[in-house]
Structures are given as structure tokens and as C-alpha cells.
Simulated assay, not measured.
Amino acid sequence: MGDLEKRVRRTVFVVLTGAALVGLLTITAATAAPATARSEKSIAADRTDVYIKDVAADTGVQPHSYNPLWASPDIKVCPTAIECAVSQNPIVGVTNYVFVKLRNPGPYGSGPSTGTLRLYRTTPGGGAIWPTNWTAIGAVGAVIYPGVTTVTIPWTGVPGPGHFCLLARWVSGTDPMTVEGPDINVNTRYNNNIAWRNVDSVRLVPGKPVVRPFAIGNALKERAFSDLVFTAQQPLQDIGGRVIVDLGKDLFERWQAGGKVGTEVRQVGETQLELLEPSKAVLGNLLLNPGERLEFSIVFSAQAPTDKEIAFEVTQFGPDSTGEKRADLGGVQYLISAGKDDQ
């Protein structure tokens, strides 16, 4: 064999060997793809899903359309470390206990979930901006196994006047938030591991008015108008009930500038408006600046006792961060009862 022929054969061998190696690498890469896919599936399999009910019918699907989403049945305040039958207003200055029910699994994962339950408070009302308007109460680490687990968080040194909106957040690396921005109503509706409770018991005695704080806010980056809508399950007139909204100087001037838009209301003081029919009243065109939250007062009174508890709701409606023009931005359910003066 001549030198030329030997060189040609060596060249052919190198070319064929290179092609074979390329082919081998291509096959290896192709056969590696399923391994990567299996890894992704493994990660997906680790996804857990713990949820807290926003309403009784809530099954953990996010987002949902249930309302009001700010009266979670899974958050309860009790005066002792033993869970009470019905949630109560916190007692100022002492240690109260908040019981939160965590449900596992929801529709988006399975298996035990390790994380931290965090609890926050703010002034009752709507438009509470996350996290600006919220104050931490406490946090507890836990492992949530399949079923319903009740986690208890002590609430020490409750400040006066003792009326708050509460927010519970289950934070877990395997159960991430879907979306979380400044708009708390959107956060609650789109994350089944966030729940919000704003229920206040109002015990009236004939002739003795009771005052409750209420706040409205704007989580958007531009000015926006909001409405306050008042509803009741039964007429407050049954107990000679009277409701007066004291907007305060700033908010009253904004209501005036907005055209004094209102239904079933009349002015009874410099900044006070009486609800003539509390179950049908509306205050509209309240202008709020970006990131602003303003507080005012609601005054309740009754003339007669009753054995029944009347649910009276105040809700803020306005635009939210999803583009909805008239969204439920939050509110308060007042559970009104009226007893005798000697009780």
C-alpha cells in the first residue's frame, strides 16, 4: 500500500469517526431529554396546596367569584387558648388567641406541606394596601398534613379600641402565591392560601351609641372614585336602630366635591350623614389619591332590645388592579344585637 493510499484511508477513518461521535452526542442529548422531563415532573409532584376558606363554599379554586371574600369562616378570635364556638372581638390589653383552619389538599397539589402561618391586622374597612396598611401580629411554623389542621397564634397586647381586620397568609416554598401586589382583595381572591376576616360584634344598649372605625383606601397608582354600600339582612328599624356616618372634614369635603352623591342619606351635622334606610343606603363619588387610606366613624344606636342578631354590612366598591371598574374592595360585617340596659 502506498503512502498516498494510507493517508486517504486515515482521512476517511477520522471523518467517519467524527460523524459517529456527532451522532453519538446527538443520541445522548435526545435520550437525556426524558430525564430532564422526569426531573420537572418530580418538582411538580412536590407541589403542595394548603388553602383557607374565604367563604363556606370555598373549595380552594383560585380565583373564585364568591362574595364577601372578607368574612372567612376559617379565622376565629377567642379570649382563651381553648377554641371558642363563635369568633369574638379581641379584648384590649390582654392576650387573645387567633385560630386558623388550614385545609390540605387543595386542587393544585398534595402531600404534607411545611411552612409558616403569618397573621396581620389593620383598621376595619376596604382598600387595605399590602403590605403598607398591615401590622404583623405573629407567626407559627407548622407541617400541615392531609385533613384540617387548626393553628393557634397568640395575640398579645391588643391595642384599643379593639376592632380590626385580620389577614392570614400560609407561606410555603412548595405552595407559592399565584400573584401578590398592593391590592389585598385581588391577592385574597387569587391565592387560596390567603384569607381575610372583617367581622365585628356590636352590642347595643338602648340610648347608648356605639362608635366603630372604618377606613377606605386606593391601592392603584392613580386617583380613583369609590362608593360605600350599606346592606342589612333585616331592617334595623325593628330595634329602633339608627346609623350615622361621620366622614370627618377631609372625606366630607371630597363627598361634597363629588356632587354629594347618595341614596337614602341626609346630613344631620357638619360632617355627619344619617342613613335613612340603612339596608339600602349608598354614598358615592368618594375620591381617593394613589396609595391613600382614610378613616372615618360609624355610630350605631338602638331604642329597643331584641333577641335576634342583625347582620349589617358596609362595603367599599371601586376599581381594582385587574381592570374591574366596580370591584368589592373590602368591607365589614357588623353583627348587631341589642340588650336591656341592666344586662
Rank of each mutant, 00 (worst) to 15 (best):
D200P: 01
T135Y: 04
E83A: 15
P107F: 04
E292I: 05
T59Q: 15
F296T: 09
L247F: 03
L117G: 01
V265E: 01
G258N: 06
L220Y: 08
P290K: 07
D58T: 08
N218K: 06
S42F: 10
I82S: 15
S39P: 02
Y120F: 14
P159T: 08
D246R: 11
N96D: 12
I336A: 01
S87W: 07
V243E: 02
T271Y: 12
T17N: 07
S113G: 09
R9W: 10
S39L: 12
F317G: 04
N96Y: 11
I129W: 00
G18Y: 10
D74W: 05
L102K: 04
E83N: 05
G291Q: 02
L21G: 10
Y120S: 03
I91M: 12
L276C: 05
V245G: 02
V22A: 15
I194M: 11
K325Y: 09
A85T: 03
K280Q: 14
T48E: 05
N89V: 06
Q303T: 15
G60A: 10
R203N: 09
G93L: 05
L283P: 13
K280G: 08
P154I: 01
G106H: 07
I194S: 07
R189I: 00
T132G: 09
V94D: 08
L228A: 02
A215C: 08
P305R: 00
A56F: 09
T116Q: 14
K6R: 14
D54C: 13
A281M: 03
L25H: 09
G160F: 10
S301L: 08
L21W: 14
F300D: 02
G330T: 10
Q267W: 02
S65E: 12
T26P: 03
N187D: 14
G248R: 11
S39H: 13
S72L: 06
G181N: 10
L119N: 01
E274G: 12
D3R: 14
D341K: 12
A29I: 10
V140T: 13
N192P: 12
F296S: 04
P209L: 06
N191H: 02
L273Y: 00
R223L: 08
K280V: 00
P159H: 09
G248D: 10
V61A: 11
A224P: 06
A224W: 06
P154F: 02
T17W: 09
P209V: 12
S301V: 10
V179K: 07
G93H: 03
Q267D: 00
L273A: 00
G331F: 01
R212Y: 04
V140N: 03
H64T: 05
R212M: 10
V92T: 15
M1P: 10
L335P: 00
T114E: 09
I153H: 00
R9V: 07
V332D: 01
F99M: 11
K6M: 11
T188K: 03
